[in-house]
């Protein structure tokens, strides 16, 4: 009985954790390249959730295509906002301006969505929510199978991109030393743009898959982003492997806290872990980054 519960919650935790990883990876990538926190990231999650909702209900091609649509909408919006707002501000050579602009963009996106979609929560049901597989006393909905498969594929793809392609290596070079990357013939502005597009695409797609478990309002992303920030810090700012590990751990903590303690304690437990990490391992789970090269 207890083993079943532990296994059941492990699966729930991995499902949740994978989604947190998708959201947190974008934050980490942007932080790595720009050394800047993107406060608007949460709203790309919300945008993705709404994009999926409306594509499903208005076009009616089902849930899976709507995840792809959320990804595309996120990517396009990321490109647009970077090109129209962040890039011009970055040219002013003031570190604070782009940071404050991300808060501005967040407020703007929330209020636009509020104007269009209203404050009342949307019920996000998919054709997979009610179909459940059962084995050894454990229940897994098709919805969760889709989440695990799609996130795992996406994370693997991103990993291969970063590790084995020229552009991925250039991206890592820009986040380690932007100036020297320029000397190699790498256009840092192009890679910053690419980072925003990838990060926003991941957030949009994460939103489409989180939507069924969120209270879908124009502020839905905010509830996720606090945990995503914690994951980025626990994983060691800008560290992709650390972020993946931290995301899964936080997902598991959340599901076990819900089961064995009290759902109200989730944030407390997560942030206790965060403080503990900062105290014992301030460079993150996998510490290799951010020493100065002499």
């Amino acid at each position: 009985m207890t083993t079943t519960i532990v296994l059941q919650q492990a699966i729930n935790g991995i499902v949740l954790g994978s989604l947190y990883v998708l959201v947190a990876l974008g934050l980490t990538l942007i932080y790595g390249v720009l050394v800047q926190i993107n406060f608007a990231h949460a709203d790309f999650v919300t945008l993705g959730a709404f994009a999926a909702y409306f594509f499903m209900h208005l076009v009616g091609l089902g849930y899976i295509p709507s995840i792809a649509v959320a990804l595309i909408v996120g990517a396009a919006m990321g490109w647009l906002i970077n090109a129209s707002i962040f890039t011009p501000l970055r040219r002013k050579n003031n570190e604070l301006l782009p940071l404050i602009a991300t808060i501005g963009v967040s407020v703007m996106m929330q209020n636009l969505m509020l104007a269009w979609f209203g404050p009342i929560p949307y019920a996000f049901e998919t054709e997979f929510s009610r179909h459940v597989i059962r084995f050894a006393g454990i229940f897994v909905s098709w919805q969760n199978v889709i989440i695990i498969v799609v996130s795992a594929l996406t994370i693997a793809l991103l990993y291969v991109f970063m590790k084995f392609t020229f552009l991925g290596k250039a991206l890592r070079a820009v986040s380690q030393d932007r100036e020297t990357a320029g000397l190699m013939g790498i256009n840092p502005n192009f890679l910053i743009m690419l980072t925003f597009v990838i990060a926003s695409a991941l957030a949009g797609m994460g939103g489409a898959m989180l939507a069924p478990v969120l209270v879908l309002t124009p502020f839905a992303g905010t509830s996720v982003i606090v945990k995503a920030f914690a994951i980025v810090i626990i994983g060691g700012f800008g560290n992709v492997e650390g972020t993946i590990l931290a995301g899964l751990i936080v997902g598991l903590i959340e599901s076990y806290t819900t089961q064995f303690l009290n759902p109200g304690l989730i944030d407390i437990v997560v942030f206790a872990l965060l403080l503990l990490m900062l105290a014992i391992r301030p460079t993150g789970l996998i510490s290799e980054r951010r020493e100065e090269n002499v």
């Binding site: 290596k169 890592r172 070079a173 380690q176 030393d177 020493e291």
Partner: peptide, 8 residues
């Protein structure tokens, strides 16, 4: 100062 990419 050489400026190699330390984590590559």
């Amino acid at each position: 100062g050489r400026r190699v990419f330390p984590f590559l």
